[in-house]
């Protein structure tokens, strides 16, 4: 091997080593995992993640809904598509029958991300998320009363949220998910079980949502447990 060849080899090694180092040093957390895990009961998801996001939900297979303006969304979420739509406390596998006779199933869903990807959820249950209304419910168990906290959500697209039956957030229009986009007024999470309910309406394309609670200083609240096993307990 002549000197030029040696130089070429070393040049290749030197030039390629940063690329190699970059490849091997990419942390696994940098890889997005958008796929929601249906029916998974991973104990790690029973508490909010490090940033306070709730990673476990009960989600109903989508209902057809059109319109993402404020009035259209409010009309949609107040129309009873199935009995006790705004009050029912679902279980994994439970079915509901909509007004048009469709039978839809509630699914326990875990996510490894800060958000829940409804596009892939819809795909996983054999449908799509165009002109769709998704209902999401979760139980939040608090060790004590927590005053002056706020529910903070982001959604693609419009969404309306309730805490213990009280409507607390509505964001409307064609929008992408932004962390802490819609934020509730100050509220109190009671000791024991609290029910969080969201309705996400999507016109077309990607759809997802994220949710967490903020404390009185706008920091993520993490001192609660999340339950989908027996939400109404």
């Amino acid at each position: 091997m002549n000197k030029d060849s040696n130089r070429n080899v070393w040049a290749f090694v030197l030039l390629s080593s940063p690329v190699f180092l970059m490849i091997v040093s990419v942390p696994s957390t940098a890889q997005c995992d958008p796929m929601p895990k249906l029916g998974v009961q991973n104990s790690a998801r029973t508490v909010p993640n490090a940033d306070g996001f709730i990673q476990r939900w009960l989600i109903l297979e989508p209902i057809r809904a059109v319109g993402d303006t404020q009035n259209a969304v409010q009309t949609t979420v107040k129309a009873e598509h199935f009995p006790n739509e705004l009050t029912m406390i679902p279980k994994h596998g439970q079915k509901v029958t909509t007004a048009d006779g469709s039978e839809l199933t509630w699914h326990a869903v875990d996510t490894n991300e800060y958000n829940v990807n409804l596009y892939y959820f819809a795909q996983a249950v054999g449908t799509n998320c165009n002109n769709a209304l998704f209902w999401a419910v979760v139980g939040v168990d608090c060790p004590e009363d927590m005053a002056n906290v706020r529910l903070a959500i982001g959604s693609n697209s419009a969404s309306v949220w309730w805490v213990n039956g009280q409507e607390v957030i509505g964001i409307y229009g064609n929008r992408c998910t932004v962390i802490d986009d819609g934020v509730s007024k100050r509220l109190t999470l009671k000791k024991g079980r609290n029910i969080i309910r969201g309705a996400i309406i999507n016109a077309s394309g990607a759809a997802d949502f994220c949710a967490r609670f903020l404390d009185a200083k706008d920091k993520p609240l993490k001192t609660f447990n999340v339950s989908v096993g027996d939400v109404g307990k």
Binding site: R150, A152, I169, I171, V178, D180, D181, G182, V183, S184, K185, R186, L214, D218
Partner: peptide, 17 residues
């Protein structure tokens, strides 16, 4: 406090909120 929500909170000169 959020992109789509404003409230009243003690002033923090270190924050853009």
């Amino acid at each position: 406090v959020g992109s789509s929500f404003a409230t009243l909170a003690p002033f923090d000169p270190a924050s853009d909120k």
